[in-house]
Design a protein around this nucleic acid. Structure first.
Lengths: 148, 148
DNA sequence: GTACTTGCAAAGATTTTGCTTCCAA
DNA sequence: TTGGAAGCAAAATCTTTGCAAGTAC
C-alpha cells in the first residue's frame, strides 16, 4: 500500500474501488461520514456517528479503516495541538492543504490557506530534496474573539 | 501559570527560578537533560536518561515536569508525524521556530528554518487577528537519501 | 472458493490522578 | 513551618493485536 500525494477529487468510495480495496458496508458507511463531515472527526466521534446507522459496527473497524485511509494518503491525521487529550482527528484530503489554528481558550478551530504555505513547501522540497507526502501545520494561541 | 512566547535564552533552570518555580533536584536534573539533549526526546527516553543519574526518579515526575514546562511555554511538544507510536517529543524552546521533516522510510528527523515560515506566521496573526503562542510544522515524506 | 475483513476480547502504549510522605524556601 | 512536589499504585485514555467467524469478489 503506497501513499499518494496526488489525491483525486473523486468521492472516497470510488477512489477506494479504483484502487482495488474491497468495499464492505462498514467501509462504505465510514467513508461517507468522513466525506460529508465538516471535518475534524476523531475516531470515537466517527464511531458514534456510524453507530447511529449501524449499531453493530465495532470501534476496532473504525481504527482499521482510518489506518487504511491514512496509509493510502486519503485522509490527513491532525492533533489540533492536543486541546483535548491525546486523540487524533481526521479529515478527507479533498481540499488544498491548509493550516489549522486552535484557540487554547475557546477551543475553536479555524482553517487558513495561504500561498506562502505553498511556497514554503516548495522551498523545502527544493532545498532539502525532501519529497513531502503530508504536511501538518498547527498553531495554538488566542483567536480574535478570545483576546484582551 | 501563563505561557510566554518570548522565551529568554537563559538556561532553563535560571528561567524557572526567576519565575518562582521551586527547584527540586529532580527538576534540575530533568531540565539539564532537556537542555543538553540534541532534541526530540520523548518522556520515557528522558526518564531513562534521568535514571542513570538518579535511579529513584519516577516516571510520573517526568510527565509532571514536562507538563509544567509546556504550560510555561519553555518546551515545544512535537509528534514527528507519529513515526513510532503515539508518543510526544519535547525540545527546549531556545532556538528560532523551525520545521521538522520526518522521513517515513528511515525515520531521520531534519530541521528546517525559513524566513517564509516567519512571514507565514505574520500573515496568520495579521489576517486572522490570531495571537500565536505555539506553532508546529511537521512534514512527512522521503528524505534525499531515501528516494528512488 | 478464497483471501480479506469484521467482531470480540484482550493487551499495549502513553499519560493522568489520588493520596501519602517529603522537602525547598 | 508549610505549601508545593515526589513517589507509588492505580486508573484513564487512546490504539493495536490475535483469532474465530463472516463476506466481497
Amino acid at each position: 500500500m503506497e501513499a499518494d500525494a496526488n489525491v483525486s477529487r473523486r468521492p472516497l468510495e470510488q477512489e477506494l474501488v479504483s484502487r482495488g480495496v474491497r468495499m464492505t458496508h462498514q467501509r462504505r458507511l465510514l467513508v461517507q461520514i468522513i466525506q460529508s463531515a465538516d471535518g475534524h472527526l476523531d475516531a470515537v466521534g466517527l464511531w458514534q456517528r456510524a453507530m447511529q446507522q449501524d449499531p453493530t459496527l465495532n470501534k476496532v473497524t473504525v481504527y482499521r479503516t482510518l489506518g487504511m485511509l491514512k496509509k493510502l494518503g486519503l485522509v490527513d491525521e491532525l492533533d489540533l495541538m492536543h486541546l483535548e487529550g491525546g486523540k487524533h482527528y481526521y479529515e478527507a484530503k479533498t481540499t488544498r492543504d491548509h493550516i489549522h489554528l486552535a484557540c487554547t481558550k475557546c477551543g475553536r478551530i479555524q482553517e487558513f490557506e495561504s500561498s506562502l504555505f505553498e511556497k514554503l513547501k516548495g522551498q523545502i522540497e527544493r532545498e532539502r530534496q525532501f519529497r513531502i507526502s503530508t504536511v501538518r501545520v498547527e498553531a495554538g494561541g488566542l483567536c480574535d474573539r478570545c483576546q484582551e
